[in-house]
Nucleic acid binder design. Sequence first.
DNA 1: TTGTAGGCGTTATCAA
DNA 2: TTGATAACGCCTACAA
Lengths: 338, 338
Amino acid sequence: MKHITIKDIAKHLNISVSTVSRAFNDKYDIRAGTRDLILATAKEMGYRPNPIARKLIKQQSLTVGIVVPEFENAFFPQVIIGAQEVLHKNKFQALVMQSSESAEMERENVQTLVDNMVDGLIVSLASETENLEFYQELIDKKMPIVFFNRVSEQLNTSKVLFDDYKWAFFATEHLLHQGIKNIVHLACPQKLGFAINRINGFKDAHRKHNIEPGEIIKCGFSVQDGERVAGELIAKNTIPEAIFSASDFSAIGAMKIFKRNGFKIPKDIAVVGFSESRLANYMEPPLTTVSQPTVTIGQTAAELLLTQLNSKGIFVPQTIILNGNLVVRESSMKNLYS
Amino acid sequence: MKHITIKDIAKHLNISVSTVSRAFNDKYDIRAGTRDLILATAKEMGYRPNPIARKLIKQQSLTVGIVVPEFENAFFPQVIIGAQEVLHKNKFQALVMQSSESAEMERENVQTLVDNMVDGLIVSLASETENLEFYQELIDKKMPIVFFNRVSEQLNTSKVLFDDYKWAFFATEHLLHQGIKNIVHLACPQKLGFAINRINGFKDAHRKHNIEPGEIIKCGFSVQDGERVAGELIAKNTIPEAIFSASDFSAIGAMKIFKRNGFKIPKDIAVVGFSESRLANYMEPPLTTVSQPTVTIGQTAAELLLTQLNSKGIFVPQTIILNGNLVVRESSMKNLYS
DNA sequence: TTGTAGGCGTTATCAA
DNA sequence: TTGATAACGCCTACAA
């Protein structure tokens, strides 16, 4: 495809390319008349400045790379929308890449973005693999990076996090307050930094109420994982009074199996999920879950990155911990029926 | 961030930049020894070819732009994953942009991608607005574009479509076969090309069985739209024996309201959705729906685009219509209970 | 206020 | 087989 260039306009108007260039960069001296003429004919000829050429010469791209482990679930797309919104307002463009939960693909993606001269990166780690040196090297080379949600303690950058401890605590307490004493926790893979925070929240809520915490079962993120665990509990005949799951999907899977085996939710087993999924509100019964401020996470990450980009010189990484809320629905309201 | 360049290597090795360049482009004559030396030191120095500079001189970017109206739902992300897979195998990179269902933003996105010298575009229209001339101009300028899912008949390009007519027909027939005679269709916004195909499938299935089609109600894509319509049906006391909805979400909303008002699904009202959402299988009862081959749609679109990119010279646009299947679940099996 | 010329990191055409 | 050199489209001293 043929692109109109600054040269075409210069030739057409019989002036020099630098004058044309100046018309598109206000900061230079140029007669208003000629500028208007240039702008007008440029528009007429369908000229658009070539960002590629600009990137090359300015050594900055006005582009930010966003790398997420997946965008199959609602969480990351919403974060991306938040980030894009802020970036767009600040004349920045977002390049989005997803890593399909693969550390290798994540590395490739980041590399591609760096090669393409992004000015900064917003990243959520696919997993806590050893490729941290790779990030450390980038950071050493002064590449601004903001991590969110899935971060590493070892990397000294700005971060946007959710207060997993607190909301796991509250979610657990919400069950304890109803007099429930036997809660099983379906925990996320421990590789993910927040898993331990959710576990600690679960434990400490019990401690506060002087109740022995129930079993903590390792469990994946998926519906299938929840189904499997519920199946095992039924097989062992160790049915808890409540389930607090670190993911909505495993909660939903567990709920499905329990219901299929004749248990009533929440009467026999109360269920609380985590990380408000689109499904939660349409479950039977609707699922109580912790809602994270997804869009705000994205906005905040973008803002932190822009701050860093604008701070010529010294910059101190910040960690921002965002708040959420517990969306109480029927699945956890045991005393409705008591 | 400082990038190592071809010059740094040339200086380091005391050779010319052209020799270094050649080492990275096999097709040129270069002594194996020097090439290996260059490649080795390049690696050591952390050099990576700058794709930006390459794009500029080669006038091709090995990059494809993908523009979708949204990626909140599962559909588009899956299509994107399919497209990325094929592109990646062919050394192409995908730049993904979403338009939040806004024609204006879509135009901006496409423009940005074109400015960034993408070699081609894969697009699903946000809506059937008048900005079609914009696309027509691009097509006239020889920009390869493949549309999918939401397309326009006016644009003569390759397209990837789903056989909406056929599957609406089958879905309707699945209800009629059970002896259901009074089916209401919740139709998509007519602006979307496939809405009319689904409506025609619905009508023709009735025609085949010599049954008068039930009411066709205009309805949006969302859960709320389905809730509203169900509410209206209840208010008017015109409860159908079945609902065939052109979207899973409106089906789910309708189901929710019907259930809340004491109707049993599928006993009182059978429900069929469209476009397999992640929720469908976890509804109560699980929702019967038409499943589209999302990943294949993306793969096919990418393949069509690559074909066009490789076809130096004459190229004839193709339209590929993909097949799906009806996932029958409990929500539509009325005769289970009769 | 405008033009000339050099350069951003590559590739490609010539000579050598 | 290698090296100068001119592009690609744009920006920006410096000169005019």
